[in-house]
Simulated assay, not measured.
Amino acid sequence: MTPEHNSARHDRDSVADVALALLDEVGLADLSMRRIAARLDVQPSALYWHFSSKQELLAALSDRITAPLRAVADDVLPLARRVRDALFTYRDGAELVLSTSALGLGSSYAQSALEEALRRAGADDPQDRAVALMHFILGHATLVQQRMHADSYGAASPAAGDDATAGLDRIFDLGITALAGSARSRSAA
């Protein structure tokens, strides 16, 4: 069967499903169009029927990771935790969403949900605060994921401490409440 015929059995969703599974297995650095194509038993060129570039595929994966946040109507802190946890769902999920966000690719489901939560809480400058919160969440989650990977390979420096997740919620909550500012005090009242 030629690659063109074989690729007909796949669609954007099945390619993205395989790519997410591979992301979990090999990480972002080793996620390649060639590897995805091999898993689908197609030629790499067949993937370009569904995604015009690897960047478009990565943006679609980023959207899949953050899409469940569209329907969330939590207060700022619980929502921020949900965003962080969504990034932790996949190996290198935070790095993937960070890189696509930095390039202006994909949707901004998480940032939009944060902005709406800030509006409901009566925060000043909800759009700017949502951007700041998203930057903090992405940075924090990426740092934690990288440290967890280093720990799993025994590559973390002894000076880095014993547990990458020690104090995770406390430090995270401190950053979120500081950046949310008046939203926290108004929602607590």
Rank of each mutant, 00 (worst) to 15 (best):
Q127S: 13
R129K: 15
R129I: 06
R129C: 08
R129Q: 15
R129A: 15
A130K: 09
A130C: 08
V131T: 14
V131Y: 11
A132D: 13
A132I: 00
L133H: 04
M134G: 02
H135T: 11
F136Y: 15
I137A: 07
I137D: 05
I137Y: 04
I137L: 08
L138G: 13
L138F: 12
L138K: 12
L138M: 09
G139I: 08
G139Q: 11
G139P: 13
G139T: 09
G139K: 10
H140Y: 15
H140G: 00
T142F: 01
L143D: 12
L143W: 04
L143R: 12
V144K: 06
V144P: 01
Q145R: 02
Q145W: 09
Q145C: 06
Q145D: 09
Q146D: 09
Q146Y: 04
M148A: 14
M148H: 10
M148Y: 00
M148E: 15
M148R: 14
H149M: 10
A150R: 03
A150L: 06
A150G: 03
D151I: 01
S152I: 02
S152W: 01
Y153M: 12
Y153G: 07
Y153P: 00
G154L: 11
G154K: 10
G154V: 08
A155N: 03
A156T: 11
A156W: 01
A156Q: 12
S157H: 09
P158Q: 05
P158H: 07
P158V: 13
P158N: 04
P158G: 08
A159R: 12
A159K: 06
A160L: 04
A160V: 02
G161H: 11
D162G: 15
D162F: 13
D163T: 01
D163E: 10
A164Y: 04
A164C: 07
T165A: 12
T165R: 06
T165V: 08
G167Y: 09
G167T: 05
L168C: 07
L168Q: 11
L168R: 11
D169C: 08
D169S: 11
R170W: 09
R170K: 13
I171V: 14
